[in-house]
Computed example of a mutant assay.
Amino acid sequence: MAKQPRNLAGKVVAITGGARGIGRATAAALARKGAKVAIGDLDRELAERTAQELGGGVVALGLDVTDRGSFAAFLEQVEARLGPLDVLVNNAGIMHVGPFVQESEEVATRQVDINLHGVITGSKLALERFLPRRAGHLVNVASTAGKAGVPGGATYSATKHAVVGLTEAIRAEVRGSGVETSIVMPVPVNTQLAAGLQKGRGIGLVEPREVAEAIVGALERPRQDVFVPRAIGRTVRLGALMPRPVYEAVGRLMRTDRVLAGADASARAAYERQAVRGSAQLPAAPEEIATPGAGERTEAVPSREAAGD
């Protein structure tokens, strides 16, 4: 007999990069389940608008995941406002596309700082809360690029491989403690991060709501590996059993080697400029807001750290 899904009503959930994309969709899905949700984002103004639109008491806070002090303050404010943290979704991430040898040191460092160091920092800060309570769920958003290196996104792939390895190691360390972990590994998601990407044969974009639904499902029925779509997990596992020349030939046949390497640079220009090369400063004392209300609608304002993957 299948276990009943866990009730998420009243659970305190913090989501990084929550102003749009996967983060926003996840906040909306969890709020509908009755969870108490806080979204953190470098673009605090957009986070506030998102909270207003989602309603359900969603709390918006400024957050720079590359700054440990900012991350610590974010979680402290979440707990002060909503109560002890039950779930952290490390979603914030960026992606640069282009030949590896042409990638600047600045762009490479920024991806590592946000995609990896941000997840490391958030994971530690969450576990410091979860372990003494013998409860909590750490959700780290990686990518299918965390299972196979993708041409045209070498540094991005490296950060996502690292997030997969990090979360697997954490899982082994906290086994038996009551703390749970999940790694979310979607194919490209229809957010600004995926602007201008090519489609592989038989593999299209998934929508942010699909990733959000998978995250909610992993919280209700905990599991470690969360592929989106779920069927891609079978493809990844099958590929791991193939000899490398066969695996690479299949990738070329499916044109997965062109998804990033063949990206339209002009279509990605705005995203790359703002998310990858841009910067933003948080106010000295970010204020949280909790807003009731309006239904969800799509925003056109770009967020520097909210796309997720």
Rank of each mutant, 00 (worst) to 15 (best):
V189M: 03
L241I: 08
G178W: 13
A275K: 08
E220Q: 15
A162R: 04
L253T: 07
S279Q: 13
M254N: 02
E248Y: 10
P245Y: 10
I232P: 00
G165L: 05
A231C: 03
M185E: 09
A218G: 13
R237Q: 12
P243I: 14
A212H: 10
V236I: 13
G262C: 08
G217W: 09
L193P: 10
M254H: 04
G278Q: 06
E168I: 12
R277T: 04
Y247F: 14
A265D: 07
V246C: 03
T167W: 01
T235V: 10
G233W: 04
A195G: 04
G165P: 00
T181V: 14
E248N: 06
I215Q: 02
A284V: 03
A263S: 14
V187E: 01
V246M: 13
K160H: 02
R273W: 03
A231Y: 11
G217H: 10
V189Q: 00
R201L: 10
E180Y: 05
L205I: 07
P208W: 07
L241P: 09
V226L: 05
V184R: 13
V187S: 06
T159D: 01
V259H: 14
E173D: 14
T191M: 01
L260N: 11
V164C: 05
G217C: 04
Q198H: 07
P222T: 02
Q281R: 14
Q281G: 12
A158Q: 00
V164A: 11
G262I: 01
P208F: 07
P229A: 10
G239F: 15
